[in-house]
Amino acid sequence: MSLEPIISVTDLYKTYVTDEVKVEALKGVCLDIARGDFFIITGRNGSGKSTLLHQLGLLDRPTSGALILNGQDVNTMSEKERAAIRVRELGYIFQEYALMAELTALENVMLPAMMTRPMAECRASAKDFLERVGVSHRMYNLPRQCSGGEQQKIAIARSLVNGPAVIFADEPTANLDSIAAQEIMKLFRSLNEDESHTIVMITHEQDETTYASKLLNLADGQVESNA
């Protein structure tokens, strides 16, 4: 595995103000994620895991601190530039699958690719990824016609379709039974080990931390351990 950092975070702070109450969700987080890492973030509820993932995945902006992604300072970029990076370089998997209800599995996977590529190529690529994650039989089904495990696999295929540099997964197994959860984790391992995808994942499950090449434990918005 390469040691070249694909993500480098220095002194990251995020403060939310709700009804004049300040909540410091991240307090000076520093970390490096190398290309090809399977980086797992753990911590108790309210420790700042999701907040950190959202900053790393450019879904939110930190209050202060530096965030270098693939050698670029993404905090100083415009929303347009950040959106372009999200399309080309990042993939997302959400806890609730976050699939578009009116699109079939194939169309859901095609959607991010349609921002940049010809239709036929999007379709071929989406089919290919659905096959690779093992849900090609659900290609023409709507999300509501698929099981939770299948929906999460479709979401994984969608996160892969643009060949991202980093895949972010926010508790991807939280809504799945143990068998489906295990399948998803094996899929992540395969993507990481066989295809060298960098994965940044949040989990609450202790046994899933065994998949990590790096493990970060957050407590009260600060790095408690980073191994």
Binding site: A83, R86, V87, R88, Y92, F94, P112
Partner: peptide, 9 residues
């Protein structure tokens, strides 16, 4: 929100 997260402007 999902569309925006996926980079749809």
């Amino acid at each position: 929100g999902i569309m925006r997260a996926l980079g749809v402007r």
